[in-house]
């Protein structure tokens, strides 16, 4: 499976595409076996094969590895899908049930043997599951980390109160100096080092300078959370290029998080697994706004707005 590469930027679609192709292949193989070669594979066997294959796919194909909780969701969904498929028609359902009923009834010698083995093994299986769930676990416990804890209604930075619902970046401005949520789009391909660059791009440049002086050590040159110190932390710093971080948030949320850092996360932010310094102790308010401006411009994401 390692021969096929997941192409960066297209991975989510690629995964769905692969799933679709595999499903088609699966259908095609059993169609060939049945219609062209006369080998009718029982639905129970087909279902079992499909389920095992899907488990292996989600376990080994996707990299980085998918956490167990998500794989469990996927496996459950696959199982439900398989059940819907095998029981969608009475004919398929009877075909699926046949081996199970045969074993339960034990009308043949082989079936009787399987039933005996199952009856003997079943208590052991239950016992094993019980043992597994009861045995002391030395792993670190699972923590339901809230990545984006709800912000306060307002925050005080350098003596000034900012209402998070209404505050605006003073540097997200058009050429007339007025706040504009379109300006980033206008200059998304602009050159901040151009001497004649508009004010917005100049602020972006200044923000970039601040970023590379203070932030890139952890958040990385590409803003992807893989700076040179990143892997000293667990979890590693936020990846701004991921659509689930700054792209989901209002600019004021990011302002609050940067200003207050990991130390001042609210109670909801348990287990407070962030070592980001409260940047208000090191940067001015303007510098914080500018660095955020740069982060949005560089990643190409836009802060969330509501009108």
């Amino acid at each position: 499976m390692t021969g096929l590469k997941l192409v960066e930027g297209y991975m989510p679609i690629q995964m769905l595409g692969e799933m679709g192709l595999q499903a088609l292949l699966f259908i095609f193989i059993f169609y060939l076996l049945d219609k062209k070669m006369g080998i009718k594979v029982n639905k129970l066997l087909q279902a079992t094969l499909l389920f095992v294959y899907s488990i292996l796919y989600f376990r080994y194909r996707i990299y980085p590895p998918i956490p167990f909780s998500v794989r469990a969701i996927y496996a459950t969904m696959t199982l439900i899908g398989i059940f819907m498929w095998v029981s969608s028609t009475e004919e398929a359902w009877q075909d699926f049930r046949r081996p199970i009923i045969a074993v339960a009834d034990a009308t043949t010698g082989a079936a009787k043997m399987i039933r005996t083995v199952v009856i003997i093994l079943l208590p052991f299986l239950v016992g094993f599951m019980g043992y597994n769930s009861m045995k002391p676990n030395v792993d670190e416990p699972i923590e339901l980390r809230t990545v984006h804890p709800a912000p306060p209604a307002s925050t005080k930075v350098h003596g000034k109160t900012f209402v998070l619902q209404t505050a605006q970046s003073p540097f997200r401005v058009d050429n007339d100096g007025k706040y504009s949520d379109k300006v980033q789009n206008t200059y998304i391909d602009g050159n901040p080092w151009d001497e004649k660059a508009p004010p917005y791009l100049q602020y972006v440049r200044e923000g970039g300078q601040i970023f590379f002086q203070n932030c890139h050590w952890c958040h990385g040159d590409n803003l992807n959370g893989r700076g040179m110190f990143a892997f000293a932390f667990n979890p590693i710093p936020a990846n701004f290029t991921d659509p689930g971080t700054i792209a989901q948030l209002q600019e004021t949320f990011v302002f609050w998080r940067v200003a207050k850092g990991g130390l001042n996360l609210p109670r909801e932010g348990f287990p407070w697994a962030s070592v980001m310094p409260p940047w208000e102790q090191h940067l001015t308010t303007d510098e914080i706004w500018k660095v955020i401006l740069f982060e949005y411009w560089h990643t190409g994401y836009y802060p969330r707005t509501w009108d």
Binding site: M15, P64, P65, F68, R226, A238, G244
Partner: peptide, 17 residues
Amino acid sequence: VMTPAELKAMGGQQHPV
């Protein structure tokens, strides 16, 4: 939801896929 070990293996809070 993940164990700290899984978090480390994933290389961050966000999974790229």
